[in-house]
Design a protein around this nucleic acid. Sequence first.
RNA 1: GGCGCCGUAGCCAAGUGGUAAGGCCCGGGACUGCAAAUCCCGUAUGCAUCAGUUCGACUCUGAUCGGCGCCUCCA
Length: 480
Amino acid sequence: MRQSLSLFNTLTRRVEPVAPISEGQISLYTCGPTVYNFAHIGNLRTFLFQDLLKRAFRAAGYDVRHCMNITDVEDKIIRDSQGALAAGASNEERHAAMKALTDRFTTIFLEDLDNLRIQRADHLPKATDYIPQMIRLVQDLEVKGLAYAREGSVYYRIAGLPQYGCLAHLDREGMQAGASVDADEYERDSVTDFVLWKSAKPGEPWWDSPWGHGRPGWHIECSAMGMELLGDRVDIHSGGVDLIFPHHENEIAQSEGCLGHRWVNHWVHGEFLMVEGQKMAKSLGNFFTLRDLVAKGVDPIALRYAIQSNHYRKVLNFSFEGLRAAENSLKRIRAFRKRMEGEGQTGGGPWAEALDPKARLDQARLAFGSALADDLNTPEALAAIFTLISDLNAQDDHVALTREERDAVLAFLDETDAVFAAWPHETASLDTEVEALIEARRAAKGGKNWAEADRVRDQLKALGIVLEDRKDGTTGWRRF
RNA sequence: GGCGCCGUAGCCAAGUGGUAAGGCCCGGGACUGCAAAUCCCGUAUGCAUCAGUUCGACUCUGAUCGGCGCCUCCA
């Protein structure tokens, strides 16, 4: 049973159903990191949004093919990697220095993704592995009259593509007014033409090309890798809002100029993140990487939840207060999961407001799915979970849910966790040591030795375990 | 100058032309040896302001105030 999902499409600026090109399949291209430094939480918000996007489609029954590029050749990478080299260093040495930097930060980036439970893309192409494809694409654009060479560089002639500006909704005059002169540039026919291939300057690593020594431009790699790995027609392409212009606009120009038809159907963009009400900036001291937060004792999954409990198209104001709220919200969901994993208490008796747990569950499942299907409305999806928790907690207090009903609830929690990845089933069993402590406390309580009982409870708390005494005399526990 | 977004309770945040989801925090109560968890009750006659359209607007229109983004590298 596959559910149709709708997403805001930047091309049309409307929420539209995503109609897969291939039945039951979604091809997804997401712009990945430029690996020259640590990712900050703003970057990570975008990757979390894309993870949500992918998980939502998978949960809805689609087979998603996801490609995320790793940009490992770019001006800042060159700037940060070549400093230690002598002026006379060989091209091989320059490439090696660049690779050392990008390998290091690629590894770190992937670790960050793992810590945030962001699923790996099916394809993680490095730009430097696709130089021949990029060169061919530029050549193709040259043949079609959409590109021209100047002094070893190649530029895209945007005057040759009528739809240029369709994504950012800019007209040529608007662009001219805002265009600034890049001192780095050579002679272009129009100031708004952008570079496809950059000729190498002294001290820069280079590849051989029909135009001489050089490297790919900033935008060509996504077009080349996207078309190579996902094909001539792609369902969804996403990134942060800042990529709408010029990056994605230029990708459209490159790919559609080459293909002669629509390349991507749905363009989806995630909003920015602010910190404590201000734009994140190193100078303001509010610039955080995931590592910075972990060093402050923040659980990456709390960050994940805090970010995903807000709508992806709204500016998110990151704050430590918000993080605390996220942690407490997660506790409620996890405590409920733990309650459902255990057995119901006896002695409730009839209850006038009793409901049918199965029907209530179906209602929650429907609400959850509908919310996500409506432009990834995560706040509403979470509300569906919380209202279910409230209702079933009350129910279970009065009329204990059966084992079968509890298992059905757990299955639903698994389904929702497949999207949010924040309240997984805890497979860890109690260590014998912990079991012994709980038994010791039980004995102390039996002898009304409250001091000893409290001491043992504190000891378990230090191990990250909270106890919950039940009416029937047994003791439950959970991690916090 | 051009294009666009946002302003809902202490904080976060959904939402609809027909009378304000959810989470966190806070207060009262129940349960408990004490806790924890849970439950019950309470917490915006009002959704920036002012006009207008309408039987009816937080939801549509206009204006105003305030915050933000893009037009240049940036998630």
